[in-house]
Computed example of a mutant assay.
Amino acid sequence: MDQSMKAAFLIGKGEASRAFEIRETPVPSNYPPDYILIKVEAFGLNYADVTARIGNYRDAPPMPAVLGYDVAGEVIAVGKEVTMHAVGDRVVALTRFGGYAEYAVTNQMAAVKISKEDDVVQMLALATQGATAWYCVEESTTIYQGDKVLVTAAAGGVGSIITQLAKNRGAEVYGITGSAERGEVAKSLGAKYVINRNTEDVFEAFDRLSNGHKIDAMFDSAGGKFVKKGLKHLAPCGKFVSYGGSSAGDARNIFQMIPFALSFGFYSPIPFLMKSQSYIGVNMLRVADFKPQLIHLCISSIYEQYKRGNIKILPGKMFAISELAEAHTALEKSKVAGKIAVKW
């Protein structure tokens, strides 16, 4: 087995073209007995990577750092306590950083075996976006037949899968998108109605389309005013699930971040208690840290739904490692609908 490998190190904050450097570094060797070593076929990009690059991600390791939350590839070594995987398995896996490399390690519970024929870009989408969607819909909430469900970024990586899972539960899905084109995508995935956030007030449109009904469940990746207004429109027994803050704008600009933080509002538990409502925050890193068995459940469950044909994954795009900066920029500027992956 190789003793050294190439990895893309984050060496500075700012523009993607200057932030990364490909370096030789030792292949991971001193890992826990319940971990596996994966020869990486391709790794995925996530918006948290962009946030780390621009210097606003508190969980990011100190520089120089190897980012990366998800990889796909072949298991080439297993720890002595590993029972779920064998050498030669092709897997998709979540990593606690370290994914931007030719080899990566992860807990055996964070990996799921996939077939040789599975498309690697779509598998990487299942690992992070799919697992997040499954956790939001199936583990943190319960959706009932006829529930009115509002989804931000309904044509995005996570939102597109949430839309399908909610529809499969019998919900009436209202998808928020940023364009008519994205609205058509959301409709094709199961949204009954779509709301263009750039041409109309989201919550006024929801009130009109739902005939004044309140929101039974809202899944939000935008944060800020969407939280404040969404909670005001939440039905008794309603649930608000928050898993991002994409509406912050330029996270490097403190003059934008302060009002963004304030736009969430401040809340007492009393109204939630009186109306039997729930506000649920989702951070998959914390799930992985404290409930690794849930990570395996989420990835394996969404993979099973994909193989059964119950959900579709947006096409995404593959970049070469030499195009890492372009891939980061494409993610930051929302130029690709679906998962962005990078291959060695």
Rank of each mutant, 00 (worst) to 15 (best):
R18D: 15
R18L: 15
A19V: 06
E21L: 14
I22Q: 01
E24R: 10
T25M: 11
V27E: 00
S29N: 11
Y31P: 08
Y31S: 01
Y35F: 15
I36W: 03
I38G: 02
V40T: 11
G44D: 02
Y47P: 04
V50F: 01
A52I: 12
I54F: 11
I54S: 13
A60P: 03
P61A: 11
P62V: 07
D70V: 06
E74M: 13
I76A: 01
G79N: 04
E81C: 09
T83F: 10
T83W: 10
M84T: 14
H85I: 05
D89C: 03
L94E: 02
R96N: 15
G98I: 00
Y100L: 07
E102S: 00
E102C: 05
E102N: 06
Y103C: 09
V105I: 14
K113F: 09
V120R: 10
G130I: 01
T132D: 01
C136P: 08
Q145W: 14
K148E: 09
L150N: 03
A154C: 05
A154I: 01
V158N: 05
G159Y: 10
S160F: 03
I162K: 01
T163G: 08
K167L: 07
N168I: 10
N168Q: 13
R169W: 07
G170N: 06
G170P: 00
E172D: 09
S179K: 03
E181R: 10
E184S: 10
E184V: 05
E184G: 10
V185W: 03
A186E: 00
S188F: 06
S188R: 10
V194G: 02
V194R: 03
R197W: 00
R197Y: 03
V202L: 09
F203D: 09
E204A: 13
D207Q: 13
S210Y: 05
S210C: 08
N211V: 08
K214E: 12
I215F: 09
D216M: 04
D216H: 09
D216E: 10
D220F: 02
F226A: 05
K229I: 10
K229V: 11
L234H: 02
C237D: 13
G249S: 00
F255H: 14
S263L: 05
G265L: 09
F266I: 12
P269T: 08
I270M: 12
F272H: 07
F272D: 07
Q277A: 10
S278M: 15
Y279F: 15
Y279M: 15
L285I: 15
I295Q: 02
L297M: 14
S301N: 13
F319K: 07
L324A: 00
A327Q: 05
T329N: 13
A337K: 08
K339H: 07
